[in-house]
Nucleic acid binder design. Structure first.
Lengths: 347, 347
DNA sequence: GACGCCACTTGGATCGATCAAGGGGGCGGG
DNA sequence: CCCGCCCCCTTGATCGATCCAAGTGGCGTC
């Protein structure tokens, strides 16, 4: 095929303009162009205008690699995007990532995703760190015994966690989290305000600090209102099936009129049981979930759910990152945000 | 605070080892170390071993910025992470991103997320492209009139689309897509095999090529089996509410025994109507959705749904990107993958 | 008229890798 | 014994921006 040998008239590897190109065209020095980009204040207004115009004409944008090399930054934030577990929690993660991408953009950063395998939980971090591919990390899964936060601290790598270091009193890193207990308290109070007195709790197993935290919100709100909680709590696996079973048992033994659940997944189980028993959610029995997942929104009977302010979390995370990266003194080691309640037909 | 003036014994900005450091320690030249990393074949086995050992001892990893500058690549793939619309389609996107991150990793790439606003749809692309921050893009939302693909083509920027260029016959770019019609055909045949003859279609409005494509799968399978389709099709907005209404109308007017829907969202609407009418999904009326979203999985009655092979899509996308970036001749301009059917209780 | 200051310019070095070309030593052939 | 060759490795230049230090011309001030 002689055709494939054709001269590529417009296939030329068009090299983007460089700083020097702009300088020459604008009749100034490289340094001046650099200043126009990074320290506009140093230029006389008319010069600045001229340089800016040339930049626009040529479509110049500083070469990232060169800048990164010189300034020893990458303007990238690493985020481990763990394999999707097929559950409802993922949707929340998705919302968080979106918010993080936007908050980062405002601060001049981009988000770099990298995979993580459970066998070598810090491998991905290590690579990116040693090759100075990212400036900092955002760590999301701070579950019990997760070695990432500790490892990053030890490496003196800048990072901010979404989630409290529940099990590690030694932790000195910066974190942002949502007050789950307050969210559940909100939900419980909402049900009490609607006249419910027998409100059941379906949560996770005892070894989950997050689950216990959320549970405490229910407990304290019930007691604060002088309501009994005996026989009204259940702790199960976070799957639909378990939620359904727990609801059935509680309905039989303790006749609650409302359920507060540690997750939307469990709430789905409750709805399942109600459906089987021909009980109408919202009218006969109220149900509240946690995470305001898509399921909650599109379910035939909209599920009332605790909604984490993930947009705000992202903003706080980025704010903390900026502080870390500019070596500003750390004001707050941890930020705790209040969730809201998305009220729908199920309550 | 005199304390804050303390010498930072271990707070030193520990500079990672460089190629030169390794070279010196191993008693070879920089180039030899570089070759050990990039062209191991060029070294004598014993030298290679020695250099590798030194690399391991120092924990050396090539500086990304420097390498990027010299090689004029970034090993990054840009992906616009558009603001989350609260719907079921998002979950699929999420699964795709996960798969893409993992497939990219294998090929030595990372995924860079950037936000996109609708007012300036190509702004984000333009910035990254001009600053040579990414090597290529993956474009996901190739909906009608989306200017991105055309713009990128015009800029001669390497990119691969997930989704066919439905409305643009001129399009010359590489794409990967899932055969929605085949998926719906699969679903329809599945229902026919179960003995259904009156199978209704609830799809999107006529101006959606994707919707019309999926609809054609239903149409051809029905006709291939000698079944009538008159009065059994409905085209509505992709929201739960509309799906519910369409189902109600169809049930009243055409007495179908099964529904095939263009999305899980619409299928949710159908389930809603069934629930109101005390009809049991799967037993009384069969329902099939599209996208195998989380909703389909956790819904009390599991929803049968067409599942896109997003893992495979990601692999194909990355394969195509590699080919583009290594300037290999393009074998296939488009790759069409077959979806599968996730069968659950609703059918 | 000397001084100082502003708004640049100038020339160079630097970040850390890769590219392109340049040795040098051992070995076989003449 | 010398030449040429190949294999293995070394040397210097380079990517494009930023950092740094020193210099210049014009203008206002005292």
């Amino acid at each position: 095929m002689a055709r494939s040998e054709q001269r590529n008239g417009n296939h030329l590897p068009v090299t983007p303009p460089t700083l020097a190109d702009v300088a020459e065209r604008a009749g100034v020095s490289r340094q001046t162009v650099s200043n126009a980009v990074n320290n506009p204040d140093l230029l006389r207004p008319d010069t600045l205008e001229r340089v800016r115009q040339t930049i626009a004409e040529l479509g110049y944008s500083p070469n990232r690699a060169a800048r990164n090399l010189r300034t020893r930054t990458s303007q990238l934030i690493g985020l481990r995007f763990a394999p999707a577990q097929e559950g409802t929690a993922n949707a929340a993660m998705d919302r968080f990532v979106h918010s993080l991408v936007e908050a980062s953009e405002v601060a001049g950063y981009h988000v770099l995703l990298f995979p993580g395998d459970d066998e070598d939980p810090v491998g991905g971090y290590d690579n990116l760190l040693r090759s100075t591919a990212v400036d900092a990390f955002v760590v999301t899964d701070t579950y019990l015994g997760n070695p990432q936060a500790a490892w990053l601290s030890q490496q003196r790598a800048p990072f901010v966690a979404f989630g409290r270091p529940w099990d590690d009193d030694e932790a000195r890193h910066v974190w942002v989290d949502v007050d789950g207990a307050a969210g559940i308290a909100l939900a419980t109070q909402h049900l009490i305000d609607r006249g419910h007195t027998r409100i059941a709790w379906i949560g996770w197993r005892k070894d989950s600090p997050i689950g216990e935290d959320r549970r405490s919100g229910w407990l304290r709100t019930m007691h604060a209102n002088g309501l009994s909680t005996t026989g009204l709590a259940s702790r199960v696996e976070d799957v639909v099936h378990s939620g359904a079973e727990a609801a059935a048992v509680l309905l039989d033994e303790s006749t609650p009129t409302a359920f507060v659940c540690a997750s939307d997944t469990l709430a789905m189980g409750v709805l399942h049981t109600l459906w089987i028993r021909q009980l109408a959610p919202g009218r006969d029995i109220a149900v509240v979930g946690f995470d305001d997942s898509q399921v909650a929104q599109v379910f035939p009977v909209g599920l009332t759910s605790v909604r984490q302010p993930l947009e705000d979390v992202a903003v706080e995370v980025v704010k903390a990152l900026r502080a870390l990266l500019t070596h500003q003194p750390v004001e707050e080691r941890g930020v705790l945000l209040e969730p809201t309640l998305a009220i729908r037909e199920s309550s």
